[in-house]
Design a protein around this nucleic acid. Structure first.
Lengths: 147, 147
DNA sequence: GCTAAATTTGACGTTTACGTAAGGATCGAG
DNA sequence: CTCGATCCTTACGTAAACGTCAAATTTAGC
């Protein structure tokens, strides 16, 4: 029972290069609870990451870079997902549909919140772009009148 | 000659409240060369700001907040405008059209660069939004199948 | 089992972007 | 001219997000 599919795993240095950060950053994020990499890890052993871990890290970095969220804001935004990720390990096992449904139910509002943040930021950028366009048009008009 | 239109002027505390930052921030930005407020100011005298100064500060804050630019990146991005702002004071005076044209000429590429940055950021946000939408759709599909 | 390369833990250092406090000067109203 | 509010300069303090270094360990290959 509890058959594990041999997932390809990466060491911290590989992950760092894959996503473009340093190993320090990855350990720091784990320290903050943003990454649970190998939750069950004997102290001193090397950390191992799955493809899913890498994807999660990439998403965190995107939220950080595109929305300018602090790591503290990130933690509160993904805390639910943290629990979900913990549960997810057992997804493939003997979970009941009811349990699976609960996991999905909890994941949906999280993604919805992220989507809202992204869209709100997009709207503000649109406004800014509009103003800059107007400014540019004004400048060009002046230029024409001066030539 | 050199008739000055009595522009409404604000003290640093007023500006701070208007744009939502502290006076420290404003002085710090001046220290970095981002704001030239009262370039010709006797040491020790109070700083005075015009409506245009306030607008400029607001723009800087938007670039900082929406694009996540560091203050160093901001300085290099607006350095040209800095020179332009210095010249602009004489705009209303005895400038020739050739000089005015030069000012406008130098301002245009600056605004264009800003617009490019904003649009690039917007594209990345759109990509992110698309991915999140897809993820959300997937989750909802799973939810339907489990119910 | 041995060795080189990568990793771990712990701790102190660094940069950015301001916060904060002190002592004195300036400004505007009366 | 006086007084209270606001501001000035100088300087040290701070939080976030890592950087860096050292000594001990672990891991992969032979």
């Amino acid at each position: 029972m509890n058959v594990k599919v041999a997932e390809p795993e990466y060491r911290i240095g590989e992950v760092a290069e894959l996503v473009g950060v340093t190993t320090r950053t990855i350990r720091y994020y784990e320290e903050l609870g943003l990454l649970g990499a190998g939750a069950a890890r004997v102290k001193g052993a090397h950390r191992l990451y799955t493809d899913e871990d890498v994807a999660r890290l990439r998403e965190l970095l995107r939220l950080r870079d595109l929305l300018g969220l602090s790591l503290e804001e990130l933690t509160s935004l993904v805390e639910t997902e943290q629990a979900r990720a913990a549960l997810r390990d057992q997804w493939a096992d003997s979970d009941t549909d009811r349990q699976r449904a609960a996991i999905v139910e909890s994941a949906i509002p999280l993604v919805e919140r992220q989507l809202e943040l992204v869209r709100a930021r997009r709207r503000r950028l649109d406004d800014f772009a509009d103003e800059l366009s107007g400014k540019l048009a004004t400048l060009k008009k002046i230029r024409r009148q001066l030539s």
